[in-house]
Design a protein around this nucleic acid. Structure first.
Lengths: 222, 222
DNA sequence: TGTGCGCCTGAACGGGCGTTCAATTCAAGC
DNA sequence: GCTTGAATTGAACGCCCGTTCAGGCGCACA
């Protein structure tokens, strides 16, 4: 069983996945060819098939491992007990995780439709599991009287959509830093959850950034 | 100038746009061929080029007319004066408009990256204009002391992301009706804006759908 | 009834697609 | 230094792509 140390297999495999992730996220699954991916890796197109059975499996693997890693990372977090703290924890975790992985996030939201039915069902299941994590927080918090939420399922979908949206406009080095953004989103999430402390804290927030003088709203983000 | 009444030009043109919209939204711009569009219309591929200079212009036209129509429709709305009413009006308008046009919405969010730089700049400008409409509401409302919003630009992006997200999970005939959905989203928007009346109304909302007994959260939407 | 033209066909163009595979390279183990 | 087998090449397969264009059809007008 020769050829172990000098073997490129341990290197080329990840490089292919990395190149595919970048290109799929930038141009879309259907618009990227296997030859483009191979060129990015510095290899001929045929070599890709040592590492993936086909293009579809390459996409499915990327989405599956992104969702699995998200769930694992979330599961490994230390969780607070109080309803409000749990919600804040989820909010800040979600934003930080998504800001760190713009390509993965983009891919996971855009390319679900390019999965075969079987792969779609699997990835969709992982996404549901993540949504259920937030829904459980909302549900428990409501039962404890901490949140005023009429429908926890819809609220979970709405909040995740709001939070994930950050990665569509965030640019490194833009007007707002990561911590600032997390603070601002948390303020809105708290309010949307109808939590009792929301108003006071929001008032504090708008003191920190005074509401009176209309700051120039044009030269904004990106 | 013969051939007027029996001319198919008035029919085929719109049919091409309609077919392209449906197919682009379902499968993605890059994954749909001109031949597929033509087949859907019942015509040969070459005939498409009587109505569009190329595939890119077809996409750009669809996105441009969607955004333009959105802005026109919004401009034609009767607008209330009070900050809270303005925000509610925008919220319900946005949800109703987007629920009625799932394909257009999907396309406008997914295919921006497939536009040429020139087309992208134009469509992006229209989208900015729409975002500015919400931002103005938030800005004025904050100045009037009705909202507790630290950053109106971020808040506008966050709220639009949240509201637009409805079209990713809404299915006709699902668990929640349109009016119910609009009510629930409005409740969350009001809270996120930190508006003073938010808490009371949210409490009312969770009376209407009692928070106590954990309703089955599984057989949910779609 | 003939003419003009809007509309559409159907074939063709050059090129890129996903995938396969025999042949080659080359380092590790014997 | 020979064997072995993983890694990779490069050519080939059949197919579909976006786009062009000469030609023909059929209706409104003269």
């Amino acid at each position: 069983m020769p050829r172990k140390t000098g073997s490129h297999g341990q290197i080329t495999g990840p490089r292919i996945r990395q190149a595919a992730l970048r290109l799929f996220a930038r141009h879309g699954y259907a618009a990227v060819s296997m030859r483009q991916i191979a060129r990015e890796v510095g290899v001929q197109a045929g070599a890709l098939y040592t590492y993936t059975p086909d293009k579809q499996a390459l996409l499915a693997d990327l989405l599956r491992s992104h969702m699995a890693h998200l769930l694992e990372t979330w599961a490994a977090e230390q969780r607070p007990d109080a309803p409000l703290d749990r919600l804040e924890h989820f909010t800040r975790f979600h934003i930080a995780y998504h800001l760190d992985r713009p390509d993965e996030v983009f891919l996971s939201y855009m390319e679900l439709r390019n999965l075969t039915a079987e792969n779609f069902a699997e990835i969709e299941g992982l996404r549901r599991a993540y949504e259920k994590e937030l829904e459980a927080i909302l549900h428990d918090g409501r039962a404890a009287g901490a949140f005023a939420i009429a429908d926890t399922r819809l609220a979970a979908m709405a909040l995740i959509a709001m939070l994930t949206g950050v990665s569509t406009w965030f640019r490194e080095g833009g007007r707002l830093g990561r911590d600032e953004i997390a603070d601002l989103y948390w303020q809105m999430v708290r309010g949307a959850a109808g939590c009792a402390a929301g108003l006071d804290a929001a008032a504090q927030g708008s003191e920190a950034l005074p509401p009176g003088p209309p700051r120039p709203a044009a030269a904004l983000l990106r």
